[in-house]
Design a protein around this nucleic acid. Structure first.
Ligand SMILES: [Mn+2]
Ligand SMILES: [Mn+2]
Ligand SMILES: [Zn+2]
Ligand SMILES: [Zn+2]
Lengths: 144, 144
DNA sequence: CCTCCGCTGAAAACCACTTTCAAATGAGTT
DNA sequence: AACTCATTTGAAAGTGGTTTTCAGCGGAGG
């Protein structure tokens, strides 16, 4: 019954269904993106990718990330330091961001999620998505 | 024991303590801002203000909003539609934003706030601020 | 091979601020 | 009231992270 969940296959199916092409650039960019486990800036991913194929430009990385977002394989985050961060889609979670060092901790609390739904239902609001970000000082940064 | 909480007085004290001047522009802009109960874009507030004094420019409204933020009388919000929104500071609350009509509902749930603190404490994270935004479809927009 | 149409990279455009700068103006001091 | 001068103001220019444009490239079906 294996409905494949392999990201590469999801992407390839998306490309085929939309008359889009399989290119070397896309393969490299997506490969590097999926390999990483961080919240990546575009420039950061570009640097990774340039190690493999230096001719690849910023715009292609940008467009590929939009593509990954489009087919549900990536999330774009805006944590208020100007540049967006991209991360692999996966189980839902929210974020704690250290305002000193920029480190990011992920968290997930079912009780909060449920209460959220409760609050929405109270005014008959249909939730599509949410962002819950906690800003402050991480454990490490509290001891200078 | 009336420690004044009147916004105008807070502002005036701030101006005095920082060697800043009381100007007609600031009075008008702050007056209009405090009069409103919406989440305002800069341009929106500018339009209000221009009805009273057409010579006032975007930059002065912008700078006055920064000033209000600085002295704790305004909050700046970023709900992802590009432009920031400003609202009067008051009791803490979070937001539900309709992705169809843009309407904003405020909510406040102590249980969520407490759970948030619990989650932070678990990793010894010291909370400075947070944003909790729920995006979806408001009651009105669900019936087209 | 051919041909078509999507893809790519450099450069230009966009856009919401944010800063600069010369002239105007509060507000103390004569 | 006149003088002084640091703060303000508004127009214009600058910023920075995208986002779009466009001419040439290249994947892939025929
Ligand atoms: Mn994450
Ligand atoms: Mn609000
Ligand atoms: Zn930290
Ligand atoms: Zn709505």
């Amino acid at each position: 019954m294996a409905h494949t969940q392999d990201p590469m296959e999801v992407l390839n199916r998306y490309l085929d269904e939309h008359g889009m092409k399989h290119t070397r650039q896309r393969e490299i960019i997506v490969g590097e993106f999926l390999k990483s486990n961080k919240h990546l800036q575009i420039e950061e991913l570009l640097n990774q990718v340039k190690k493999i194929e230096p001719s690849i430009g910023y715009v292609t990385v940008y467009r590929t990330l939009m593509l990954l977002k489009e087919c549900g394989l990536a999330h774009q985050r805006h944590f208020g330091d100007g540049k967006s961060l991209f991360e692999k889609a996966g189980d839902h979670h929210d974020h704690m961001i250290c305002i000193k060092c920029g480190s990011i901790n992920e968290f997930e609390d079912d009780r909060i999620e449920k209460l959220q739904e409760q609050v929405a239902k109270r005014i008959n609001f249909k939730i599509v998505s949410h962002r819950h970000e906690i800003y402050g000082c991480c454990s490490r940064c509290q001891n200078e």
